[in-house]
Design a protein around this nucleic acid. Structure first.
Lengths: 360, 360
DNA sequence: CGATCCTATGTATACGTATTCATCGTTGCA
DNA sequence: TGCAACGATGAATACGTATACATAGGATCG
């Protein structure tokens, strides 16, 4: 490797000179290798190698008006989102795209940040934040970038959207509980304003009503462990404990389980508990939670595909909205037969290790 | 907002025409607002607003040779890394930088991916992967981007590096255990080849030796919950259970705790257990783990600062290597006084909610 | 009041690549 | 043999911005 003068980076022009061809041919060699003669290509590749040439994606993007970068705007907190981000990254890499990530704590940061994002002329943008200004959405679409709303059911119809089937999933959990004889169910949501939260409650309430069971709603206030932990106090203080507590998210459910234990209550002995999301930890022996597993990899794949703008952008067709079904995971927290035997602190064997978590 | 012809995006030239000034003045207005006359600026801003002008960061980057983008190459798995990524994102956003993220499952993907990364002329790159080819490292530094090795002690001296003080942290944990009268300690590492793993064991072994305690090493095989869960079997089958098990990472420790419980063993009653990292979950009531809390926000801040290349790049000075001290979190898993009272399934009050986790 | 300096702006160019158009040598076919 | 078609390449230009340089006008100072 020769020293490239240590200062000026080596460009396609340098390679061209070294290989005795024109810059245009060098460019073709890296974008459309098929159209350049085999021996010329070898000469160019040799020269490029020797000089340590690395194509400049910035210049390429400026000329071709495509960056191969997809952005993702995602909440900073929560195990669920951290999982999803990982899938985004992997899927995008597989497609030769890069991931520009924005974590936000407060929704207020989003609109501000979005302004900066737009400067980068991303090919696509995956939005996992609820309240984006409609006007801004419209303006963003005009620039030709492919927007995708992720896990935000309300956006379907306005913007291409990818989400798990929240209502059907909650319904399946409810059916599972009804099958175990539950008639008085408490639904613990995270934030009532979230559209996922509402959809899940709707599914649970509808199905339970059809079996004659009651389903009250309670709000934890956040999608966090701590919120679930605190909610356990409220639940334990009810006149009469419900048969089951359906929690709107796994993380909140973990808090609920720990909070209940502190009051001497355990699942499934005293009350059944279900979650939603299918986090890896749900299958950890310490919780072994019955939950609805989101097929995070499939969801990510769909989102990435839409955001990559591979589909013919007819742009007059109704925005595609993908809804994927989740799968029920039966954990110890609703194991009725074991209720008598189950003591706090004892865990069944099958709950860990041997059975690969579907959520991963 | 007038329609910008719906096809051609609006550029600084369009704004210049609309405002009756030159393109150069428009550019100055967005990069060095101080140097343009107040009334001119107002005219330009009005025109820009009216046309819906958004500066093109790609073109800016091409001209200025700076992208304001910092890359991060991070393992795809593990709660620890997911946390760290969030901090990176937040810190970078605060500095007006963008985060280009690469999650890798297999270390083999890294060198391959890195090739693609380099095309984007990032301002900086945070590396959390161990085995990058030295030659590649050298080539990358030549391009002028600021490399930072994160949580990779071995790299210190070769590349600017940011890491928690692994040895001192493990030493502190060991001192804590020694103070509780432990004389026979088992150290459960994740992957012996990892430099963090070795540093932690070194710190633990040295300190324990100085108190006359023994410290055997055992390898879980991975930094995962499952690995810890399996290791619990091995540990429980030892001729004699050690006084304490020092686990090299929180996630592995969670698996160990659950694995032990399955065998009817609990901490701290039968054996003390410590972790390392200070994940949020360590303070969840379900585990309440004694661990060494990494100041993830500080670490991220240092890494981001170095990667942003704000420091004068003398480039002949020895690469700065930042080592930050962690803090001990005393959890239930080493609470000796409670050993008699503690039953599996009962949790102390103070362990959750009221005490904000230092790791968050 | 003229020389000087400073401020605000315009002109021109460069950043590194992709791509269109033109060119030139070759092959295929009548 | 002549002409069309084709394949490979070079020359030239555009992508949208930042900035060095030039310039014009006003303020400052002697």
């Amino acid at each position: 490797m020769v020293r490239p003068d240590r200062k000026r980076p080596v460009t396609s022009v340098d390679v061209a000179a070294a290989a005795g061809v024109s810059q245009a041919t060098v460019a073709r060699c890296f974008t459309t290798p098929g159209v350049v003669a085999p021996d010329t290509r070898l000469k160019i590749e040799a020269a490029a190698d020797r000089l340590g040439y690395v194509p400049n994606a910035i210049a390429r993007s400026l000329k071709s008006q495509r960056t191969s970068i997809v952005g993702a705007v995602v909440p900073a907190v929560g195990e669920y989102w951290q999982n999803v981000v990982t899938y985004f990254s992997r899927r995008l890499t597989a497609r030769g795209r890069q991931l520009l990530l924005f974590s936000f704590l407060d929704h207020a940061e989003v609109n501000e940040t979005l302004e900066a994002v737009m400067q980068y002329r991303l090919d696509g943008l995956i939005l996992a934040s609820a309240n984006i200004a409609e006007a801004q959405l419209a303006r963003m679409r005009q620039t030709g970038l492919s927007l995708v709303a992720f896990n935000h059911p309300d956006a379907a119809g306005i913007v291409p959207s990818v989400t798990v089937d929240n209502e059907a999933g909650a319904s399946e959990l409810a059916r599972h509980l009804a099958g175990l004889g539950c008639t008085r169910v408490l639904y613990l949501g995270g934030v009532a304003a979230a559209s996922t939260d509402r959809a899940r409650f709707r599914g649970a309430a509808r199905t339970l009503a059809s079996t004659g069971a009651t389903c009250n709603y309670m709000e934890a206030g956040a999608f966090t462990y701590e919120a679930g932990y605190r909610a356990a106090d409220t639940a334990a203080n009810l006149d009469r404990l419900p048969d089951a507590i359906m929690v709107g998210s796994d993380e909140v459910a973990f808090g609920m389980l720990d909070g209940l234990r502190r009051r001497g209550l355990t699942a499934p002995a005293d009350v059944l508990v279900t979650g939603f999301d299918g986090l890896p930890q749900a299958s950890w022996a310490g919780y072994d939670l019955t939950t609805l597993v989101q097929p995070a990899d499939q969801l990510a794949e769909h989102a990435v595909k839409l955001a990559s703008g591979d589909g013919s952008d007819a742009s007059d067709a109704p925005p595609p909205s993908v809804v994927v079904a989740g799968t029920l995971r039966r954990g110890l927290t609703t194991r009725r037969g074991d209720a008598g035997r189950a003591r706090p602190g004892s865990y069944s064997r099958r709950s860990c290790g041997t059975e690969p978590s579907a959520g991963r």
